[in-house]
Write a protein that binds this DNA or RNA. Structure first.
Length: 576
RNA sequence: GCACCCGUAGCUCAGUGGAUAGAGCGCCGCCCUCCGGAGGCGGAGGCCGCAGGUUCGAAUCCUGCCGGGUGCGCCA
């Protein structure tokens, strides 16, 4: 059963055709003037131009052709040629009936594998508010693709072989030259336990980075250490192994706190072995050329309007860059997953140029033929003053601090409501708060990080949507029996129409791709339900048909909010 | 310098060719003998940065200007 909008568009297309006009002009949209009618079609303007007739005359002809339709009703022509109408009760009911299943009427038509890359923790560096964005957007996109029928795999790409690793290793070499990791004569085995804790690592890293910034000699040591590490020097590899284990555990702790998980934890080190072969291939085919001592892939295309520097494959010191590993990773994925149809990267939008270079290189070399390459960039993070966000200590707020603060506020709010001590519930509220606050915005928009707003429980927030679903659930539980779709009065119709718009909202999210349309739809349903709740008593309604019809709407509301929120990684509790 | 993104209510943001531009927060006023008030209803608040252009119709498309952000090969 097609969606309500599809049914209406089909009816209008038929009317246009009956008048000898292009049926493609029968596109229906929600009305701009809800007090006049629920839907409108503006195709008469374009049709009038093509037919060289006055728009109003065309609109009236189309309206006349709709007189016997059982899909639209209350047809009228307004102004210079707007065709206004409502959906018939039969059309609304059949659209809602088609949603009466676990998928709320959306078919799973996707086929093939999609890999979504997000999270992106940096080893030895505390995850911060920026990681919150990529984590939440990426996790939601993965769920949306999976719901659409694809095999969706989440990967968190670890930047685990770059210069920072060299900086840390050389820092420890300076501080603890006596460690066996730095003794070339040492034959092992190396200690099983790490000689440092993760907290110490987090402290050492910024100091090491700063030292390299200040001192060219230190910088060279760090570069050399990174190259040695990439080439597999045993002591460095052993030390690096400790570092990675601790870093992954910390990243997992952060992801777990939000119920986010990954199918793949493949980073730079996992494709390191592929780099020389790909380099030879690119060079052999003339795609990569020597330039200023480095090996680069020119990716300028005809028609470029902006500067397009080449992708750097090997730096002049022979080291790989993140462009190298991203190309190698893509190549590896296309081979590992023959049915890969799409690779999605969720990262700060300042990396747009980098991914453009990677995508162009892959296309030039044919490493990912048939794979749709998508970059989802999210906005720069600013503070409430509109300038780059800074904590009192000067950095970005920590990921785990944001989670802990929101969790604490959720506990406090639950205590107010007399639900003290329900820790699982507090976590659900926390997740709804953080996830919805982020996902209700389009990813590309600049991001204002306002802790007050981020953790609010009132207004356009996750807890508001949860609350409406909980109220709906309470009614359903007390009613005991199921309802049946029936007559819709003026107070029921807005909710019914909002519910009917779900297939379009999901289609929009999938096409973008973005979680935002799903979040916006969940909010619209919650808002429509809250009005309905105030205007339409259900359990105390005396007329059985009205009561059943309202109960059916309550059930559809609960189901749709539950589904939409689940695609955002948010779960609806029984009470709150 | 060149390029990309953005400029919408006091604030944070939706809305990318249709009528009278929406939401949340904040502000003012109502609504709990009634399914859960994390709520609902009403009100004030806008030359959609500015100026041209295209169009029957522009917040939306084009051009120029002003303002902000970001990027432009050896960090990841």
């Amino acid at each position: 059963m097609p969606s309500l909008l599809d049914q209406l568009t089909a009816a209008l297309a038929g009317a246009f055709a009956a008048c000898g006009l292009d049926p493609a002009l029968g596109v229906v949209r929600e009305s701009d003037r809800p007090e006049l009618c629920a839907f409108q079609c503006n195709g008469a303007f374009a049709a009038a131009k093509a037919a060289r007739r006055p728009p109003k005359e065309v609109a009236e002809a189309v309206a006349a052709a709709l007189i016997d339709s059982d899909t639209v009703q209350n047809v009228s022509v307004a102004g210079p040629g707007f065709i206004n109408f409502d959906a018939s009760r039969i059309a609304i009911s059949s659209a809602l009936a088609a949603q009466d299943n676990a998928r709320c009427g959306v078919p799973a038509t996707g086929a093939g594998t999609i890999i979504v890359d997000y999270g992106g923790p940096n080893p030895a560096k505390a995850m911060h508010a920026g990681h919150l964005r990529t984590t939440l957007i990426g996790d939601a996109l993965k769920r949306i693709f999976a719901f659409a029928g694809y095999r969706a795999l989440g990967n968190t790409h670890l930047n685990d072989l770059g210069l920072p690793m060299g900086q840390i290793i050389s820092e420890y070499a300076a501080r603890h030259p006596e460690w066996p990791y730095f003794d070339p004569a040492f034959t092992g085995p190396y200690p099983a336990e790490a000689p440092f804790t993760y907290a110490e690592l987090e402290e050492i890293y910024p100091q090491a980075a700063q030292a390299c910034k200040d001192d060219p000699a230190r910088r060279n040591l760090a570069r050399q250490a990174a190259v040695d590490l990439q080439e597999g020097r045993p002591g460095y590899r052993a030390l690096w192994g400790h570092l990675m284990r601790l870093s992954k555990a910390d990243a997992k702790r952060n992801f777990d706190s939000l119920g986010v998980s990954f199918e793949l934890w493949r980073g730079e080190a996992d494709v390191h072995g592929l780099i020389p072969g790909i380099g030879r291939d690119l060079k052999g085919r003339g795609l990569a050329v020597e330039s200023e001592g480095a090996l680069v892939v020119p990716v300028v295309e005809a028609g470029d309007t902006r500067p397009m520097p080449p992708l750097m494959y090997y730096k002049s010191d022979g080291a790989a860059t993140y462009g190298t590993t991203d190309v190698a990773t893509l190549c590896d994925r296309a081979q590992t997953y023959p049915d890969l149809v799409r690779a999605v990267y969720v990262a700060d939008r300042r990396q747009a140029l980098h991914f453009e270079q990677v995508f162009r290189t892959a296309r030039l070399a044919g490493y990912a033929d048939g794979v749709d390459l998508t970059f989802v960039g999210y906005g720069t993070m600013n503070g409430p003053d509109g300038r780059p966000f800074k904590t009192r200590s000067g950095g970005l707020p920590r990921f785990d601090d944001i989670v802990a603060e929101t969790l604490e506020r959720a506990r406090a709010r639950l205590a107010e409501a007399g639900l003290r001590g329900d820790e699982a519930l507090a976590r659900q509220i926390m997740m709804a708060t953080l996830k919805f606050a982020d996902l209700v915005n389009p990813p590309a928009a600049d991001y204002v990080f306002d802790p007050e707003r981020m953790t609010a429980f009132e207004g356009k927030t996750g807890p508001y949507v949860l609350y409406q679903a909980v109220r709906a659930g309470a009614i359903l539980e007390k009613a005991g029996s199921a309802g049946a779709l029936g007559p819709l009065g003026v107070d029921e119709t807005p909710l019914a129409l909002t519910l009917a718009a779900w297939p379009e909202a999901f289609a929009q999210a999938l096409a973008a791709p973005s979680p935002h349309p799903v979040a916006a739809q969940a909010y619209r349903v919650a808002q429509a339900f809250s009005r309905f709740y105030g205007a339409c008593p259900v359990l105390s309604e005396a007329d059985p048909a009205t009561r059943a019809a309202r109960l059916a709407l309550v059930a559809r509301t609960r189901a749709q909010i539950t589904l939409a929120l689940s695609l955002l990684g948010i779960y609806v509790p029984k009470q709150m």
